[in-house]
Nucleic acid binder design. Structure first.
Lengths: 233, 233
DNA sequence: CAATTAAGTGTATTTTTTACACTTAGTAGG
DNA sequence: CCTACTAAGTGTAAAAAATACACTTAATTG
């Protein structure tokens, strides 16, 4: 090993990167945002948006920066997923990747193909292409995490518009959990939590009874949480 | 930024380390293994066992190596916790740490003060000393994770001997969850899962009715899990 | 052999979860 | 304007799960 007196740790270091698994929803199946790589390795292959961590930013700041640079998305829900460190996960050299998973409201963003990317595109989870590096493994981990998390943390709302109908919410849960839910029981339970504010607004121009809009009451959630309440669906 | 043509990423990189939060149990309160640092920074302060990641090992391999080197423990349950990357978390230079949490059977190991450590010692969770770096934050994250995880994954057994009594198991759960559990309901539930093998063996030399020993049936757990069973307590 | 200690056990009550079907409101098309 | 169509919205009974609760038994100690 080569020593370098500048550092507390004087030996060679892995490079450090982040990769982002971005989920989006618009009513049908859950979707994932992928980019087509502009450069080698895996040129013109689909991959998760990712990039190297700068010295003056945390890994989370890095993940947010990369999302903005490569896809134009900002201000989304983001959470650390897992750190992938297999020594051969990148063909070029040793790169450790801190993966993040993000939930975005698809309607809110125009996709931009940013730096180093040919294009950015949404893929349904059941129709994912082959992915570069170990990104399939990362995606699998992210889906597991999302499924596990959605039942006991109110993160589903991050994928919907500010106002949504109960049916939209239910469809989202059914899509993530890949199982169907009884309409009446779902409504009873979610309304019983007192976390949804009913709005004085209905759907427009639908050829049926118009559904009422609701919004997620973050303030009520914080207050209930402090009193020991645990969201569970 | 200084370029270096040897690498795919040619700029300066953070150092990469791992830190380990090690939980142990021997009947009373849950305990945590800390080491007293032999060197600066934080010389003679208590800290989590940790060290730098080598180029030829994954972060998990690194964590296991460090546990062996610094405390003499091998073959424990270990799982990735979270990656801590605040730019100022180490006073020397930028160091990103992938934290792991481990569960060990305290009886099984003789503590050894290994490389760079003055001593290794178990501390009750309610009596932790001030810790070096951001290690208090790491510990807090680990406790949260353990509490969350213990109810829906059978990891508590990792902290007990191979054979244990139901009361020992219950006491462990009460200790981790910091709440008391009804004896009869606890037994009904845990035995109803068919995950505990009753052994033909009782406690010896106790001045009361001797309790029966049980062991955790890993095979049964794997089989049930494949059939869609979810542990929950 | 009496006292002490924790092990081991069952039932009734309450709470939660599940299963299930009809009426209503809003538009479209004739 | 009337009919057809569609999804919204709503309550109850049955089953399952969670909870609360107290006495008998086995083993040692003195």
């Amino acid at each position: 090993m080569k020593k370098n007196r500048k550092y507390a740790y004087e030996y060679e270091r892995p490079a450090l990167a982040t990769d982002c698994v971005i989920f989006g929803f618009d009513g049908g199946e859950l979707k994932l945002l992928l980019i087509e790589r502009e450069k080698e390795p895996f040129k013109n292959k689909w991959a998760l948006p990712g990039g190297f961590v700068f010295m003056e930013e945390t890994t989370e700041e890095c993940a947010k920066r990369i999302l903005l640079e490569k896809t134009g998305i900002r201000h989304m829900f983001i959470e650390q997923l897992y750190t992938f460190s297999d020594t051969d996960r990148d063909p070029r050299e040793r790169i450790v990747s801190v993966a993040y998973f993000a939930l975005v409201n698809k309607h809110q963003y125009e996709l931009v193909a940013g730096r180093d990317t040919v294009q950015a595109e949404w893929f349904e989870l059941s129709k994912l292409p082959k992915l570069a590096f170990d990104h399939s493994k990362i995606v699998k981990t992210a889906i597991q995490r999302l499924k596990g998390k959605v039942s006991y943390q109110p993160i589903g709302f991050e994928l919907l518009d500010e106002k949504f109908t109960l049916t939209q919410l239910q469809t989202l849960y059914e899509s993530i959990l890949e199982s169907s839910i009884d309409k009446r029981n779902f409504r009873k339970k979610i309304l019983g939590m007192k976390l949804l504010k009913p709005l004085d607004e209905k759907e427009q121009n639908v050829a049926r009874k118009a559904a009422q809009f609701f919004s997620f009451d973050k303030k009520a959630y914080r207050e209930l949480t402090q009193k020991g309440f645990h969201f569970e669906l």
